[in-house]
């Protein structure tokens, strides 16, 4: 599942050697965690390991996977995007307003993704051109876009329903639901970008060693703007999924999605200091968080315990990741 470190660096022969290498555990913390949690829940309840439940789990993980991939783009350049919590409802409101205004689904889709991208462009320009720290810039945009979303929607959530959205939320190709098909495609595309393209390599270099990247002639400012534009487009896409899933546009902040997106990336083994992108690890991280909630629900554990468990898992993963090579 994780091609990153293990395959690339000619591990000495023998599974034992691999298992003895602490770096293996550090690099694959999220996948290992996912397996452990999965096995535990399947032993604890017969309802966990059924196709119906797994499919539900994947559907509820889909939005987070797209958001975490968006977050990955910011984090890989040693940045972070706090404005996701406001950009997501902003793009959802734009989608809803354009659709309910009678412009049709294609226009609403384009508008939502464009709305997300505009926030990305502004984030990128503030960070790369005005030289404002990523944390501060996106914290500011978090407030600005929260306000804008509330203003244009008049602070009200409103229902948005269409056959298209219903099909998107409930439909499938064979057993594969559209929802997680989209998430899988996005994650694979991001993985491909980082590992197989010059653009992705330049983004990694910009995050890993900005001076070196500049020295080698990479336009680092343009790279930093580009990652926030991609990030914004993905948030716009996630907003469409959110409207399809909830059946409406809600302008209120999506703080838990923001925190989960950062937690997924950290769980997945990407460094917050940039330069390292583990997209498939990020997907595993998002699945770990979603699986915890799913399992707890099946086991009828009080929902008050859920955030605590998620927090403990994130810290445990961070400790494990210190073993990374």
């Amino acid at each position: 599942m994780m091609p990153a470190g293990a395959a690339a660096s000619r591990v000495p022969a023998g599974i034992e050697a691999v298992l003895r290498d602490p770096g293996f555990w550090g690099d694959n913390a999220a996948v290992i965690g996912l397996l452990v949690i999965g096995v535990a829940f399947s032993l604890l309840t017969p309802f966990f390991l059924t196709w119906g439940n797994i499919s539900d789990l994947l559907v509820s993980a889909s939005i987070l996977v797209v958001l975490a991939t968006a977050q990955q783009f910011a984090i890989v350049t040693a940045g972070i995007d706090l404005s996701i919590a406001a950009n997501l409802p902003w793009a959802a409101v734009v989608f809803g307003l354009v659709y309910t205004g009678g412009f049709g689904i294609p226009a609403a889709i384009v508008a939502a993704i464009a709305a997300g991208m505009i926030v990305g462009v502004v984030n990128g320009l503030i960070i790369a051109k005005l030289r404002v720290n990523d944390f501060i810039a996106t914290l500011g945009m978090l407030g600005v876009m929260n306000g804008v979303a509330l203003i244009v929607s008049d602070g009200q959530s409103f229902s948005v329903s269409s056959p298209f959205l219903q099909a998107l939320a409930l439909g499938s190709i064979g057993p594969i639901r559209y929802f997680y098909l989209i998430a899988i495609v996005i994650a694979l595309a991001a993985h491909f970008l980082f590992t197989r393209t010059a653009f992705g390599t330049h983004v990694l270099a910009t995050g890993g060693n900005r001076d070196a990247a500049r020295n080698m002639g990479i336009p680092v400012d343009r790279m930093r703007i580009a990652v926030y534009v991609i990030n914004g487009a993905l948030v716009g896409l996630a907003a469409i999924l959110l409207v399809a899933r909830t059946g409406g546009s809600d302008p209120s902040l999506q703080t838990s999605q923001l925190l989960s997106s950062i937690a997924s990336v950290v769980l997945g083994g990407s460094s917050l200091f940039g330069g390292r992108a583990a997209v498939l690890g990020t997907v595993a991280g998002a699945l770990v968080l979603t699986t915890l909630l799913n399992g707890f629900t099946l086991l009828q554990v009080s929902e008050f315990y859920q955030p605590m468990a998620v927090g403990i898992v994130v810290i445990a993963a961070a400790v494990l990741s210190r073993l990374q090579r």
């Binding site: 690339a8 330049h202 890993g208 060693n209 001076d211 990479i218 330069g275």
Partner: peptide
């Protein structure tokens, strides 16, 4: 001007 998280060949061919 080497990027530590990239491989030797990626650094060799950077840009």
């Amino acid at each position: 001007a080497l990027v530590e998280d990239l491989t030797v060949w990626q650094n060799m061919y950077l840009n």
